[in-house]
Amino acid sequence: MIPAPFDYHRPDTVEAAVKLIADLGDSARVIAGGHSLIPLMKMRMTDIAHLVDLQKIGALKGIAIDGGTVTIGAMTTQHELIGSAALGSAAPIIREAALQIADPQVRYVGTIGGNVANGDPGNDMPGVMQCLDATYHLRGPDGERTVKARDFYEAAYFTARADDEILTAVSFEVPVGGQAYVKQKRKTGDYATAAAAVIIAKSGGNCSAASIAMTNLSDTPVWCEAAGDALVGSSLGAADIDNAVDAMQAVINPQDDNKGPAAFKRHAAAVILRRAIERATSRA
């Protein structure tokens, strides 16, 4: 479990990091917490000549809630997400999801930026970000641009981020309604067998808005627009939830693996989504 040789760089500004990556070209990769990247390097499943470490860039850290907008710096650790009382009341789904990521040791160093930029369908935060309709802030040699989380993921490990761009922050509007992140996993430290992020707003007993995203049931996180739509305007009765589940089933595409066959995952996805809808509704 020893990675191939690599060079290590530790810039202290975003600008310096962007420049380094531009100069070093294809063979450079940023490293945040390293808890997805280093295992791949140690198993020699990826070969990287230059690691550009973002740890020293203070500007990438921190949680800001300004008006109705939450902005989280890319280098904010999962542990810090859990510990932030302000974030906990603005968007409790983040805390609920972060607590189900890996274990405390991983969360002390693993970052939100790494988790969403990584592109592994097993990561939990991408689904949460899609559910929240978050915006990703990218900085490259040509300056800054934004991409919606719902448009970011193309395939496993393929995202809308260009190789020479750094993800600097995620931002989203403080959500309205009840939120829930429900995850089935085999053990502590495991990626989801199936997980669902759900936000439900109610008005006058009926559902006024709903957002649903599923984790690890396709080669990307899946925002299930039609599933949410199936709930909007309904009284969130059994038949409505059935419709949402059916709509979710139409857009996921689970594969057989060590966690089980696709048919099992579809069943689990349905159960988990129902639980998440119930939980979010009860909190709405």
Binding site: Q184, R186, T193, K259, G260, F264, H267, A268
Partner: peptide
């Protein structure tokens, strides 16, 4: 008896 195998047992016994 991991999750999917228990699920399979329940499934084959018609409990779903």
């Amino acid at each position: 008896h991991d999750h999917w195998r228990i699920w399979r047992t329940a499934h084959e016994l018609g409990l779903h």
